[in-house]
């Protein structure tokens, strides 16, 4: 396959960025999208040009490190996958592909296609945990948990923290990310104890960090590589309201 690529280049966080056009040739349809960028970078180095910086690591869709807006979609045109799992067979020979970093006020661009997502860590540090120390905990089977609750908790826990939800949301809201963590723990008896406090602390931190409000457009769910449902946002809202009510 031969492709034309319009890629966002930006020297550093302070510099003004812009699109540059590149061409890659003879790419196998079985190649992954990031391997296609590897090929481009290898060519650029040989041409004496600076390779394009993009975040990636596991390349099997679980670490959450890769990002990219591809033709206007977070993680590209395919559904329920990350960019690293996208393969070139989803494109046609001769296509023009536009590649941009996440666009969100809370995720500033660091260089080219890499952004700073440390805001997500900060939200989880505000309360995305159960307050237990190592050791001194009960036997794992001491508290039976219904399979349904455990499964629903796992559905929410599948979030990989990639940032596609906030980057897709027109308001730049991180509600799906926050809801996934709150909901995952709220479905378990051991997580219920701090449920209200957790929801309040994480939402407050999200607001403080410059994420926008949720207006229930559902765009986040559509672009989530792990198919996290916006039903979790409803659960977060319930947790949040009950916390406010108790205040």
């Amino acid at each position: 396959m031969n492709l034309k690529l319009k890629i966002w280049r930006q020297k550093n966080a302070k510099a003004k960025g812009g699109f540059e056009t590149y061409h890659v040739e003879n790419v196998s349809p079985d190649t992954s999208f990031l391997e296609m960028l590897d090929i481009l970078n290898n060519n650029l180095i040989h041409e004496g040009k600076e390779p394009i910086v993009f975040d990636h690591d596991c390349r099997e869709g679980i670490c959450g490190m890769c990002s990219l807006h591809i033709n206007g979609h977070a993680h590209g045109p395919d559904t329920e996958i990350t960019t690293c799992q996208l393969h070139m067979r989803k494109f046609k020979d001769g296509d023009t592909i536009v590649i941009e970093p996440w666009r969100s006020a809370a995720f500033p661009v660091i260089k080219d296609l890499a952004v700073d997502r440390s805001a997500y860590d900060k939200i989880l540090q505000a309360g995305g945990f159960i307050s237990v120390n190592t050791g001194g905990v009960p036997d794992a089977n001491a508290i039976p948990i219904s399979k349904k609750d455990a499964d629903e908790s796992m559905d929410a826990a599948a979030c990989i923290g990639c940032g596609a939800c906030a980057a897709t949301c027109k308001n730049g809201s991180a509600m799906l990310f926050v809801a996934a963590r709150v909901s995952s723990l709220a479905k378990l008896p051991q997580g219920r104890i701090e449920g209200a406090r957790r929801a309040k602390a994480m939402v407050a931190k999200m607001d403080e960090l410059g994420f926008g409000n949720c207006t229930n457009t559902g765009a986040c769910e559509a672009e989530c590589p792990k198919g996290i449902s916006i039903a979790h946002i409803a659960r977060l809202n319930r947790e949040f309201l009950s916390a406010k009510f108790k205040d």
Partner: peptide, 18 residues
């Protein structure tokens, strides 16, 4: 035990046990 206390959603049987 530690992981369950932290909220790791291990697979469970219908009876609620791991």
């Amino acid at each position: 035990d530690q992981c369950v206390a932290q909220g790791v959603p291990f697979a469970r049987e219908y009876g609620g046990l791991l």
